[in-house]
Design a protein around this nucleic acid. Structure first.
Lengths: 170, 170
DNA sequence: CGCCGCATGTAAGTTGTTACATGATTGA
DNA sequence: TCAATCATGTAACAACTTACATGCGGCG
């Protein structure tokens, strides 16, 4: 149910079309809440039907610009303050760890060093993102940086954990 | 597609019924790959039809004990060694951070301290789990401990990040 | 003999993915 | 003019959730 809130959240900054929103998903939200084009257009229709957003302008090529309604903003605030972030996310990466026993120690070690490399690459990508983003003083910048910091710390943690785990195998 | 591999992985240790597997999901795998009863029974049927597992015994109350076949073990190894753990998981928790700007600073701070508390509680639960589990020398214990360590480090990281983020708001 | 736990299944609905389909506008 | 980008949508399928449904077996 969070795709709808992601859309409401983005629209709380400024009106946008489905296409615009898609771009935002591919950049800032890609690491947090990926969504496909297909899913987005469907969800936007539902949100409009529910009155949480409305079509505020129409442009060329059938472009529809959506604006958050008062009800939409209220729903966004309600979600943020009254509901618990719960869903403990599934982790493919970690699931595999449980079953490394069916491999040789060497193969298991390879898997763990592979994870280290993955975290390194991810860290580099996040640092690159940090450099390229135009950090202003707006709200999204403040909280965007906080989210980015999470990614940095998370990947550092994963790298060190994988390093430690590899030593455990011996 | 990983539920099937989780089932294959559990069956690689020893044969079990759907009911047995469900218990394992509720305990060891609950934090990594939650699954419902409904989903499991369906997936077991599919795995049996595909020849990756087979019914090795039938017991009272229609109990069916499944055993991993050679093909099933091969598939498990293939998954572990040849495929990339990819799906960067969605994070409800982090998504919310992006939109804290629509709240007051105080409300945003409350959210972050709420996350700290959540991590603390999770840490306590994992430490309790560490105490109660009967850690043997078997494969699953070795790798289960490694997975648990991940959980501990992850929650410590989240707690410290949330603490840091709360200070950023001032 | 009655309750609790064992044990399996189905149905309906939601969310998310992949692929297909179409067409308008703009800038080189 | 033609290619890239803008722009929206639909269909089929896979994964997951929630709720409903049923019944046997063992133990006290």
């Amino acid at each position: 149910m969070s795709l709808r809130h992601a859309l409401l959240g983005l629209l709380s900054e400024r009106p946008a079309s489905g296409y615009d929103l898609l771009k935002r998903f591919e950049t800032s939200l890609a690491n947090v809440w990926p969504a496909t084009q297909s899913q987005m257009y469907g969800e936007l229709s539902k949100l409009a039907a529910a009155g949480l957003i409305s079509v505020s302008a129409e442009g060329p090529r059938g472009r529809k610009e959506y604006t958050l309604t008062d009800e939409g903003l209220a729903e966004l605030r309600h979600w943020l303050t009254e509901t618990e972030p719960q869903r403990n996310p599934r982790s493919d990466t970690l699931l595999r760890v449980f079953f490394l026993g069916v491999l040789t120690r060497e193969q298991a070690g390879d898997y763990l060093t592979g994870l280290m490399d993955l975290s390194d690459r991810e860290l580099e990508a996040l640092r690159e993102l940090e450099r390229t983003i135009d950090w202003g003083d707006d709200q999204l910048s403040v909280y965007g940086r906080i989210a980015l910091e999470y990614g940095l710390r998370f990947n550092e943690m994963k790298r060190e954990w994988a390093r430690w785990a590899a030593t455990q195998l011996r």
